[in-house]
Computed example of a mutant assay.
Amino acid sequence: MSLALQIIFDALLLGGLYAIGALGFALVWGVLNVLNLTYAAFIMMGAYATYWLWRIGFDPVAAIPVVMLLMFGVGWLMQRGLLNYVARGPGSLPIALTYGVNLVIVGAALYYFTAEYRSIALPDYLRGSLEIGGAQLTNARVVTMVIALTLTAAVWWFMDRTETGIAIRATRMDMESAQLVGIRPRFIFNITGGISAALAGAMGALMAVIYSVSPQMGDHHLLQVLIVCVLGGLGSMLGPLVGALTLGLVSSIVANLWGATYAMLAGTVMVLLVLAVRPAGLLGRQFYES
């Protein structure tokens, strides 16, 4: 019973973190049909922003909204000043461009911050642990899990209930029809880029609370985000969430039974099996297969 609860709690933590990252990545991928590989650097920047805000006196949890606002500005500027000009070009162009930008940002972080791992000294309310049914949960992981799931629900509400969210979904489904009803695609692209970067920053900020921070941390987490997006499928807001919870559950089971070394392998194998049966992903629409 205790092992089952431990697996469920770990799955919710990982699923919440992956869901935030996957929602942000899937927004740009789904709306602009662009694989924005700078997303890895955005995750890292969010983690470092949290770390440095903590160094000047911010509570690490209270710093998360500030980090999201900062990263929204970064994403907006990058989308408006760079990606909008290549989004409709050959598919390889934005991939090469964003990969290059990612290398520049990571290289700059390595130069200024070095490859040293940095950690946040947690405040008292994040220290310690609690036991539920024999499963051990640190306070930091509980708070992180709650914030991650809350942010995921907030994004869901924004996309489903607000005028801007509906405009983003309309642009993703049919840009020409969206233009006919007065939606400005460039504005939607900029907003989408900002929200995507803000969610990457939130993922990095939460990672900084429970893990160490380093310049190359984003690359590993981007791979997890890609797996979640491919597994859940594009074209549905529910896809990244289902993919995140599925990957979190599988990773948690494998990590608790056989060790964390095999968790990544298990996730990769699961994606290959799902795609062999359903190329669009678990909840993806056929339009996004091509």
Rank of each mutant, 00 (worst) to 15 (best):
141 R>W: 03
281 G>A: 03
199 L>C: 06
144 T>M: 14
286 Q>C: 10
85 Y>R: 09
201 G>V: 06
123 P>M: 08
128 G>Q: 10
43 I>H: 07
137 L>P: 08
72 F>Q: 06
110 L>I: 11
272 L>V: 01
239 G>A: 07
282 L>M: 09
59 D>W: 01
123 P>Q: 09
56 I>A: 06
265 L>E: 14
223 L>Q: 12
102 N>T: 05
260 A>F: 15
171 T>F: 00
189 F>T: 13
114 T>E: 04
272 L>H: 00
138 T>G: 15
123 P>F: 10
272 L>P: 00
60 P>R: 09
139 N>E: 06
55 R>A: 10
8 I>R: 12
270 M>D: 08
238 L>Q: 03
269 V>C: 06
243 G>Q: 02
139 N>Y: 05
19 A>F: 10
262 Y>R: 12
12 L>N: 06
125 Y>M: 09
154 A>E: 04
169 R>F: 00
105 I>S: 14
34 V>T: 04
102 N>G: 12
157 W>K: 04
13 L>G: 05
234 L>H: 02
103 L>M: 13
260 A>L: 14
66 V>E: 07
108 A>K: 11
134 G>D: 09
2 S>N: 12
250 V>Q: 01
22 A>E: 05
283 L>R: 01
63 A>I: 09
109 A>I: 14
13 L>N: 11
62 A>T: 01
193 G>C: 02
227 I>Y: 01
118 R>A: 01
265 L>C: 13
144 T>N: 13
89 G>E: 11
135 A>S: 12
13 L>P: 09
287 F>K: 13
130 L>R: 15
15 G>R: 05
145 M>L: 06
101 V>F: 06
205 A>C: 03
226 L>Q: 00
259 G>H: 05
197 A>Y: 03
136 Q>G: 13
290 S>D: 15
142 V>Y: 14
196 S>F: 02
152 T>Y: 03
199 L>W: 07
8 I>E: 14
113 F>Y: 09
102 N>S: 14
78 M>C: 12
186 R>T: 03
254 V>I: 10
177 S>F: 08
240 P>T: 00
114 T>A: 06
87 A>I: 05
147 I>F: 05
159 M>R: 08
214 S>L: 12
165 G>N: 12
126 L>G: 09
255 A>Q: 13
243 G>H: 03
182 G>S: 13
193 G>M: 05
182 G>E: 12
85 Y>D: 04
